[in-house]
Every structure is written in structure tokens, then in C-alpha cells.
Amino acid sequence: MNNPTKIRIIGSVGSGKTTLAKKLSAKWKIPYYELDNVVWRRESTGDIRRTEEERNQFLAGITNSNAWIIEGVHNEEWTNDTFEKADLIIFLDTPYYIRTYRIIKRFIKQKLRIEKSHYEPTWQIFFKMFKWNRYFEEVGKRNVLKILDSYNTHSVIYKGIRMKKLEYALY
């Protein structure tokens, strides 16, 4: 596979989006962006939600550049360009039980300060992640598959749990 220069990675919380984005970014020397950081401006005093206009301008600046990897669960209308302009779309359809395990593992690592986080790892967010994971399983996955119908010539659905297999296929 020729190295794509515009990659969109989508999946639920705990699916491996950030891990894959970081690895592909390092391998192909392409900057990666987390959609959560497009929605939120990270400040030392706490996160501040960008206005729709700020968010859309920030995302347009990314998608209008020559190369990017964008990862996130977001698939609302404001993210349409991330799909339309992508050379490759990767849907990480990781099994539900693996995502659940990863949510727990991540929370423990963040609480022990072994893993960095863009947000304060509170119990409230921890429990929200389980809700988001369940919602994605019941509703969000269907929405993603519907979106991918329009981009099936350059999209990949990965149902595995070992990222190495996917990485090897992409390299």
C-alpha cells in the first residue's frame, strides 16, 4: 500500500484510535490530531469548549493541510471533511469486551500517573466512558457503517484486537 497522507481513524472509546494514530504518525512522519482536542481547548485551569465557529475553523485548518491523521469517535456533520478528504479511513471495530477492559486499564494507569491524560481522570468521566462505549455499540457503530458506505473504496474495517496485524497490513 502506498503511504496515504490523509488518514481518518474512527472507533469507540478504548478501540485503539490514539495508539494507532501515534504509531502511524511516527512511521510516516505525518502529524496526528485528536478530535477531542479540536472540540476542547486544553488550559491549565481546565478544558474550555470551543465555539462551533472556532472548532470548525480549527478543523478546517487541519483538513486543508497536505498531510494529517485525524482520530476520534466524532462523526457528526461538522466532521464530514475528515471523511471526504481522507485517502484512507480506518474503522477500529474492536470487540466491546476489549474496549471495556481498556477503559479500566487506562483509568488505573492515569490515576497512578503512569499514563498521561488531557483531562482529569475522575470517577465521573470513568463511568461516562462506559456509557459512551455502550452507546457506540448500540447506536454509534451503525452510524459509522452508514458513513463508510459512501467511502468503501478507501476504507478499512478492522475487527481484530492486535494492532500489530493492522500495522503490518498498512505498512
Score class of each variant (00 low, 15 high):
M1H: 05
N2W: 04
N3D: 12
N3E: 15
N3S: 14
P4G: 02
T5F: 12
K6H: 03
K6P: 01
I7T: 03
I9A: 01
I10W: 02
G14Y: 10
S15H: 08
S15N: 10
S15Y: 10
G16H: 10
G16Y: 05
K17D: 02
K17F: 05
T19C: 14
K22Q: 12
L24R: 04
S25M: 01
S25K: 03
K27S: 11
W28A: 13
K29W: 15
K29M: 15
Y33T: 06
E34K: 14
D36C: 04
V39L: 10
W40G: 03
W40K: 02
R41Q: 13
R42P: 01
R42H: 11
R42V: 12
S44L: 08
D47T: 09
I48G: 08
R49N: 08
E52I: 05
G61W: 00
G61K: 04
I62V: 07
T63H: 07
S65W: 03
A67L: 10
W68F: 15
W68V: 06
W68P: 12
I69Y: 13
G72A: 06
G72V: 07
V73H: 13
H74K: 11
H74W: 08
E76M: 08
E77N: 07
W78Q: 00
T82F: 01
T82M: 06
F83E: 01
E84L: 15
E84G: 08
E84A: 14
K85D: 07
D87G: 09
D87M: 09
D87K: 06
L88Y: 00
L88R: 06
L88F: 06
L88P: 03
F91D: 01
F91S: 02
P95L: 04
Y96C: 09
Y96L: 12
R99I: 09
T100V: 14
Y101P: 05
R102I: 00
I103Y: 02
I104W: 06
I104N: 02
I104Q: 02
K105Q: 05
F107N: 00
F107C: 02
I108M: 01
Q110N: 03
L112I: 03
R113S: 09
R113A: 07
R113W: 00
R113E: 14
K116M: 11
S117P: 11
H118N: 10
Y119K: 06
Y119H: 13
E120T: 08
P121R: 10
T122W: 00
Q124F: 11
I125W: 11
F126M: 05
M129F: 15
M129C: 13
F130I: 12
K131E: 11
K131G: 11
N133C: 15
N133Y: 08
R134D: 10
Y135P: 14
Y135D: 12
F136P: 05
F136A: 13
F136D: 06
G140H: 13
G140E: 15
N143F: 09
N143A: 15
V144H: 07
V144E: 07
I147L: 12
L148E: 13
D149Y: 14
S150T: 14
N152M: 12
T153V: 08
H154R: 13
S155L: 06
V156N: 00
V156L: 10
I157E: 02
I157H: 00
Y158G: 02
Y158I: 01
Y158L: 04
G160A: 02
R162W: 01
R162T: 03
K164F: 13
K165A: 12
K165P: 05
K165T: 14
K165W: 09
E167Q: 15
Y168V: 13
A169K: 05
A169F: 07
L170Q: 03
Y171D: 15
